[in-house]
Each structure stands twice: as C-alpha cells, then as structure tokens.
Simulated assay, not measured.
Amino acid sequence: MRPTVRRIAILSAITTVSVALSAGVASAQDTEVPEPSSFTSMFTAMATPDMVVNADGVATPGEEGATGTFNYRINSDEEIICYDITLNGVTPPYESPARTATHIHEGTAGMAGPPRIAFPNPEDDGSGALRSEGCLQGPFTTGVAPEGTDTGEGFSLAQIEADPSSFFTDSHTANFTAGAVRGQLTSVPMGGVATGAGGAASENWAPVALGAAALVGAAGVGTLVARRRAQD
C-alpha cells in the first residue's frame, strides 16, 4: 500500500473510532424528558449557607444571606427525576469540576460526598431569583471521575428513596466552591402516603395540576395537596 493511501486509511480508522466513542459517551448522558404521569416519591431541601462543608467535612459557610429551595419528584421505575430549583441571594458565576454546578450528592448532614446527579444551573427569571426546572432520565453522569469512573455511574434513584437523609443538594459558585447553599433531602408525603425510606405512593394518586410548583408550598408545611385520579 502506498504511504499516502495508508495514511488516509489510518486517519479514516481513527475518525471512525472517535465518532463511535463520542456516540457512546452521548448515549450515557442524562436526557431531558417530559414529565411522567406519576411519581413514586417526592423530596425537598431548604438550603442555607451554614450547612456547607468542604471536602474534608469542615464547616465552610456559603454565601451569607443566600437561600435555596430544591424540590424533586422521582419516578424510580422509569429512572426519572423532575426538579424545581429556586435560589435567592446566590451570586453567579457558577463553578464546579462537574459538568454543572448544581447537584445531588451522597452524604449525610455535616459530611461531604460525591455528586450523583448534575442539574442545569438556575438562571435569572427576571425577578432576581435564579430558577431551574425540568426532568432528567438516567443513566446519570456528573463529569467527575476521580478514579476513572464517573460518580453518577451505577447510581439509581431508588437509593434516594431508600435513605433520603443520606443525600444533600447544593449549588457551587466561583466565590463559594464548597457550596453557596446546601440542604439535606427530606421526604414529602404524597397523596397521604409517606414516601422515602422504603415508602411508596399509591399509583392512584398524582400531584395537582400545579405540578412542581405545588412542592414549594409543601416544603413549608410538610404535606402535599393531591387529587385522586379517575378510575378506569
């Protein structure tokens, strides 16, 4: 084979491999999806700067006066998590070694832990608050791979349902890299049935039409208004 032809063949092979690898990575990324018709559990976190700790578990207060409301609805059967996040008093730009700076981490109160899910960073909604909402479907990735394995790999939403207190949520900024605000997940009753820690809501119940917004009120009173679905 002539040198020029051989070089073209080699370059073509490299390109083919590169495209295949890129396709493989893309297929493993979290996918934005429509809201599912039902959920197996719901969680909320009222995030504050005093909850933040650094990688060594040492208290490292976040941005003074900032707050965050993180509301999550989970369908663990379909591996879908819907998020409704509002930050007040948090000053971008965001900064994190992960592919976004807003996460759910695995870690109990006062402890650090690896990110398991990376959410789109909240953006100014015109009122001065930062908002982000939508739904993601796994398998989940974070872009953090300290030992060659992404910290989202192998993670399942059922792990949150089994032990929500072992997970926290936060947002990181350039001025507060350990976290501007942080809060531990707390389960929210759904349709009168406690969820989380092994609980599951009846499939005959669903959130009211307010959808994710209903969780904002629920976070304050510890309950969730629900309606019964019409029976077939």
Rank of each mutant, 00 (worst) to 15 (best):
V5R: 13
R7Y: 14
I8R: 08
I8S: 05
A9Q: 14
I10L: 15
S12W: 09
S12R: 05
A13Q: 03
A13D: 01
A13N: 03
T16S: 12
S18M: 15
V19H: 04
L21H: 09
S22V: 13
A23F: 15
A23E: 13
G24D: 07
A28V: 06
Q29T: 09
D30I: 12
T31D: 11
E32R: 09
E35S: 13
E35K: 13
S37H: 11
F39R: 06
A45Y: 02
P49I: 09
D50M: 09
D50Y: 07
A55Y: 11
V58K: 01
V58M: 05
A59N: 13
T60Q: 04
G62R: 05
E63V: 02
E63Q: 07
E64G: 02
Y72T: 01
Y72F: 11
R73N: 04
R73Y: 05
D77M: 08
I80M: 00
C82P: 07
I85F: 07
L87E: 05
N88Y: 06
G89F: 00
T91K: 06
T91W: 05
Y94Q: 08
R99T: 13
R99H: 15
T100I: 10
A101N: 08
T102P: 09
H103W: 02
H103T: 02
H103L: 03
I104Q: 03
T108R: 11
M111H: 12
M111L: 15
G113N: 05
P114Q: 02
R116V: 15
I117V: 12
A118H: 08
F119D: 06
D124G: 00
G126H: 13
G128S: 00
R131N: 14
S132Q: 09
S132E: 11
L136Q: 02
G138I: 03
G143I: 09
G143V: 07
G143F: 08
E147L: 11
D150T: 00
E153V: 15
F155I: 14
S156P: 10
L157F: 10
L157P: 05
A158N: 06
A158T: 10
S165M: 11
S166A: 15
F167D: 00
S171Q: 07
H172I: 10
T173F: 01
N175Y: 04
F176Q: 00
T177R: 05
G179M: 06
A180S: 11
A180C: 10
Q184G: 11
L185F: 06
L185K: 01
T186H: 07
S187E: 13
V193S: 13
T195K: 01
G196Y: 02
A201P: 08
S202T: 12
P207V: 04
P207K: 01
A209K: 07
L210V: 11
G211P: 04
V216T: 12
A218D: 08
A218H: 04
G220Y: 14
G222M: 03
T223F: 05
L224N: 07
V225Q: 09
R228E: 13
D232T: 13
